[in-house]
């Protein structure tokens, strides 16, 4: 088990390196740069651009920029600054003097950590995931136990919507119904400390995952229902409730756990759109904004944080899998 963990942690290094490489060169290959303004705005003059480029090291060869971002290099004053390997994600091109790690992880003054951009996104992601699991798994179980009844068909209908309709469309629909139409929730909150304003973003973000979880749980339950060991359990005279809870559900959930890894990645990518639609003060919106502004270090830093997050999520799924299924031994 511990060798398994060590190995998996060591694997994070090449994964993150590859992510960093691809992102870095793609980002620089994309047209435009951090000093471009849209044509109606006041332009940055050539001299200032040159000074800025020197300050940020943009005048150096691209490979050198890459190594100094990842491993470290000399800054404009000639001092050595350690790079991303030391957790130093660079200085923002837009927010003067602000490091990316500070921008993402530091909460506003006298607020706890979860008021940081990262904290906000993490909370939203956790709520979305909770919604997906707490609704999706029971829905799948009930649909399977009531196979081919109206309950099953209703859940199939919702699942189909959740899987096939993009989340920004669902977002707009739900806003239309619950905010504009019924007026139950506000979508222009005065403060994100209100509880009700979290509901729509979390539900929309978790909707696709909820649908996939429900579908997977249903299929997996239907598979389990036919298993010999369920018949054995009945032949022992166990109550139906015990047969379902003790003998079916745990077995049915094993394959469901495997989709949680990809689901987390889905929550991350979903958050870019959802946070932008709801004006949510999180990392996803910061990321989208940074891309538009070609804020190179912000793009790099945020990507690396996301990559680490998804990798860790997949790792915990694998560990969880080992706990659920005794046939799987976590070795090499």
């Amino acid at each position: 088990m511990s060798t398994f963990l060590i190995r998996r942690f060591l694997w994070l290094i090449p994964v993150l390196f590859v992510v960093a490489t691809i992102t870095f060169f793609l980002m620089h290959a994309a047209p435009g740069g951090p000093w471009d303004r849209d044509t109606t705005a006041r332009q940055v003059d050539a001299k200032t651009q040159k000074l800025l480029s020197e300050y940020y090291g943009l005048d150096k060869p691209i490979l050198m920029q890459f190594t100094s971002y990842v491993f470290g290099g000399k800054n404009s004053k000639g001092q050595f600054v350690c790079g991303a390997v030391c957790g130093n994600l660079g200085i923002s091109y837009r927010m003067k003097g602000l490091t990316i790690q500070h921008y993402l992880f530091a909460p506003p003054e006298d607020k706890p950590f979860w008021y940081s951009k990262f904290g906000y996104s993490l909370r939203l992601g956790v709520y979305a995931l909770l919604f997906a699991i707490v609704v999706g798994i029971p829905a799948g179980i009930i649909a399977a136990l009531k196979q081919n009844t109206w309950i099953d068909y209703l859940s199939l209908f919702i699942v189909t919507i959740g899987i096939s309709v993009p989340n920004f469309v669902i977002a707009l629909l739900l806003i239309l119904i619950f905010a504009s139409g019924l007026g139950w929730v506000s979508i222009v909150p005065n403060s994100w400390d209100q509880v009700d304003v979290w509901i729509l973003p979390a539900v929309v973000l978790g909707f696709g995952t909820m649908a996939r979880t429900a579908r997977m749980t249903r299929a997996s339950m239907l598979e389990v229902v036919r298993q010999d060991y369920v018949r054995t359990a009945r032949s022992k005279g166990l109550a139906e409730r015990v047969v379902v809870i003790r003998h079916m559900i745990k077995n049915a959930l094993i394959p469901v756990v495997t989709i949680l890894g990809p689901a987390l990645a889905g929550l991350v990518t979903g958050s870019f759109i959802i946070e932008s639609i709801f004006g949510f003060p999180g990392m996803g919106r910061a990321y989208v904004t940074a891309i538009g502004q070609r804020d190179y270090s912000m793009i790099m830093g945020t990507t690396l944080v996301y990559a680490l997050l998804v990798a860790l999520a997949n790792l915990s799924v694998d560990i969880m899998y080992g706990f659920l299924d005794p046939r799987i031994r976590l070795t090499d």
Partner: peptide
């Protein structure tokens, strides 16, 4: 029926591989 099953009439099955719950 449940009080008969397993207590008065018990059954064993063909495939000892699949007839046990793998996670208990």
């Amino acid at each position: 029926m449940r009080q008969v099953r397993g207590a008065q009439i018990a059954m064993i099955f063909q495939d000892p591989m699949t007839s046990f719950n793998p996670v208990l």
